[in-house]
Design a protein around this nucleic acid. Sequence first.
DNA 1: CTAAACTCTCACGTCGGTGTGAGAGTCAAG
DNA 2: CTTGACTCTCACACCGACGTGAGAGTTTAG
Lengths: 125, 125
Amino acid sequence: MKIGELADRTGVSVRALRYYEEKGALRPDRTPSGYRIFSDSEIRRVAHIQTLLAAGLGMDLIGEILACLSGESLLLDDCRERLEAERRRITNDIDQLVHTRSLLDDLLATTRAPAQPNPVESSIA
Amino acid sequence: MKIGELADRTGVSVRALRYYEEKGALRPDRTPSGYRIFSDSEIRRVAHIQTLLAAGLGMDLIGEILACLSGESLLLDDCRERLEAERRRITNDIDQLVHTRSLLDDLLATTRAPAQPNPVESSIA
DNA sequence: CTAAACTCTCACGTCGGTGTGAGAGTCAAG
DNA sequence: CTTGACTCTCACACCGACGTGAGAGTTTAG
């Protein structure tokens, strides 16, 4: 499919898709005239990119990771290290967010008449 | 204390502190010559700002929140709504991060010889 | 009293992920 | 063949939380 269709099916802008390619996270084929051609599997790939972006990973890193996982690189060990580092960072972020949520609860408590159970503690807990 | 000392004691740059004031999150007094004067309690306030920033709240919002909690505004209900909205957003972010961490685990699994317990599942769980 | 250290207020630079044209080529339908 | 919808490649604009001087006044130590 061409870039417009991929944009429609993923909800990601055409501009963003071109940017992902620029960073090495997508590797579309090209028609003789230069049009990018994506396979259906790229839809999931784009979803992964979105997920990783939302988690705070930079596009440079995402590009390297996806390239590496595509077997484009022999630096598997290096790649694994980066992934594990990001995993740790995410876990830290989670802990930090949990802590911040408590702070917000404290702040809320100061503006509210005390007592009042707990409004569904995330999916974790 | 003057701004330099506050910077030293909080680990936040002088520039950032001025920026926090600009956004209404800090309200230092001024000497006749214009120097900002902070009280010791501002140290904790700065820590709170850092925490909220790290959680993804924007400075504009943080400024409003802290101003409101200082009793500067009568819009308590409005303020509470914002706080609760951010609380919900943070909970969403946490869930999202947990999901992303699973994705990373999947990716890691594809680069590793299978099996291998679990490396300390955050402080939650 | 002087020099060093600090502080003040502009105001422009940075970085990352996109938006937004500009100008030009390409493809499908009538 | 023409029109309109897509696509291409530059390349500048944007936002948010600062960094980084510039130029000028203030305070402190010797």
